[in-house]
């Protein structure tokens, strides 16, 4: 099976986000970037498909040089091939999808996997746009996947429940948390990943369709606190009501 996994580099969830001086983008200085957590599930699902059907898993990302780090992570987890479409230009979801689609056309994958969203801009565009550009069925929020021959049975999360859907290969699948438990890269594989090549391509297109006008940090709110359900948590809850919230 020829499996393509699209991955994206995003700021660490704990990073302190600062807007650039132009007021329309995140200032990357001092931010720790990580592999988009939803894409980790996509990589894991790709590896499991390969284990089941044999084949090749290719990880692709669009971004600057620093995005190679997430490709190293993908290689350490076990993907066979890593590809970066180098685009330092500011791009939108369409541009990323177009570049991936142009690359994917040369690869002719049986299935394209990706996270349901990138946790940075939360545009939820990628699987739909990619499906359209590739002329493939596209299903997102997939929390269970079963492939038999060319039949693809899936369960997807919907508001308050689950929906069972089916389609056929080739298709684009946006995966949801819970579809699997991503493996840890084995430490020796991290070392091996260092010496594996990362293929580089220039962007096939710079066309964008959405322009960001301004970006603002939300007004800070009072921080909530989540407690567990042990007796000690209940005691702490009562203490917080007394001492912190001064509710009594």
């Amino acid at each position: 099976m020829n499996i393509l996994v699209c991955i994206s580099q995003v700021p660490d969830t704990t990073a302190k986000i600062v807007i650039n001086s132009a007021g329309n983008a995140v200032d990357p200085a001092g931010i720790k970037f990580i592999l988009n957590p939803y894409d980790e599930y996509a990589i894991e699902e790709g590896l499991r498909l390969r284990e089941k059907f044999t084949g090749t898993v290719t990880a692709v990302t669009v971004g600057g040089d620093s995005a190679k780090e997430i490709l190293r992570t993908a290689l350490a987890m076990g993907v066979d091939k890593a590809v970066i479409i180098k685009n330092a230009e500011k791009s939108d979801s369409f541009s990323v999808a177009k570049n991936i689609a142009d690359y994917a056309t040369t690869l002719n994958p049986d299935v394209i996997l990706l996270g349901r969203q990138s946790i940075d801009y939360d545009s939820f565009q990628m699987s739909g746009t990619l499906g359209e550009l590739m002329n493939m069925a596209s299903v997102s929020m997939v929390s269970k996947l079963e492939i038999t021959g060319t039949d693809v049975a899936m369960e997807r999360d919907i508001e308050g429940g689950k929906e069972s859907v089916q389609t056929s290969l080739p298709c684009v699948i946006g995966v949801q948390k819970g579809i699997n438990e991503p493996r840890y890269p084995k430490l020796p594989d991290i070392m091996k990943a260092k010496s594996k090549p990362i293929e580089e391509f220039s962007p096939s297109s710079q066309e964008t369709r959405v322009q960001t006008i301004t970006m603002d940090i939300p007004a800070s709110k009072r921080v909530g606190k989540i407690l567990g359900d042990t007796d000690a948590d209940i005691a702490e809850f009562v203490r917080l009501l007394h001492e912190d919230a001064k509710a009594f």
């Binding site: 190293r72 992570t73 890269p185 991290i190």
Partner: peptide, 14 residues
């Protein structure tokens, strides 16, 4: 190095 940091992050997650 990048791989040393990745080792750290992997063990930290573990």
């Amino acid at each position: 190095s990048e791989d040393e940091k990745m080792v750290r992050q992997t063990v930290r997650d573990f």
